[in-house]
Amino acid sequence: MEFVSPLIESVSPVLIWFLLGIVFFVTELILPGFILFFLGIGAWFTASVLALTEVSLTVQMIIFLVSSLVTLILLRSWLHSIFFGDSNEEDDSVNVDDAPATGIVTEAIMPPGLGRVKYGGSFWQATADESISVDTVVRIIERKNLIVHVSPLHAEETV
């Protein structure tokens, strides 16, 4: 004979699915990956179905899986762009200006390691093909994400 706790028997499956949804939502806040959110939606959808009708545990699991997958497939990219923004739509001031730019080395650059450059009103991690000392004026050659590639600006060069 199987022992089942009287407390578990007295708890409504609707409440269990609802609380499971909350657990998924809270876990999403702790471990953001934007996947658990849709499992929470699936759990709440299952709770809603159970509030209207009584179905077996197997059907509940199918409802949970299907609703989670459908919302994940249909809504993830759209909601991700709403919550996290779309980097393709916005240009920052560094990308807008096509004119040659210069900066000042604030932390020596010793290839292949990174140094630091003050450029565009901010401090950037920087790489270079040669060693560059502090307070050297540099030309910004390329920007990849948050790292700029620089070269020293010689006295005869003007920007």
Results as ranks from 00 to 15, higher is better:
V4M: 11
P6T: 09
L7H: 04
L7E: 12
I8L: 15
I8Y: 10
V11P: 05
P13D: 06
P13C: 04
P13G: 05
V14Y: 01
L15V: 15
F18R: 05
G21I: 11
G21M: 10
I22T: 10
F24Y: 12
F24N: 08
F25T: 08
F25Q: 07
T27E: 04
T27K: 03
E28Q: 14
L31T: 14
G33D: 15
G33N: 15
L36Y: 06
F37T: 10
F37Y: 11
L39R: 00
L39N: 04
L39D: 02
I41A: 10
A43C: 13
W44H: 14
F45K: 00
A47Y: 00
A47K: 03
S48Q: 00
V49Y: 07
A51H: 10
L52G: 07
E54H: 12
V55K: 05
Q60V: 02
F64D: 03
L65M: 13
S67W: 07
S67K: 07
L72F: 15
L74M: 15
L74V: 14
L74H: 05
L75E: 03
L79D: 02
H80K: 15
H80Q: 13
I82F: 11
I82D: 00
G85V: 10
D86P: 05
E89P: 00
E89V: 11
S93V: 11
S93E: 12
D97P: 01
G103Y: 05
A108L: 00
P111W: 07
G113E: 13
G113I: 00
G115N: 02
K118H: 13
K118F: 14
Y119H: 08
Q125A: 09
S133G: 10
S133D: 14
V134H: 05
V134D: 09
V134E: 12
D135G: 01
T136N: 04
V137K: 13
R139C: 01
R143E: 02
K144L: 02
K144S: 12
N145D: 15
I147D: 01
I147P: 01
V148M: 03
V148K: 01
S151R: 09
S151M: 12
S151Q: 10
S151F: 02
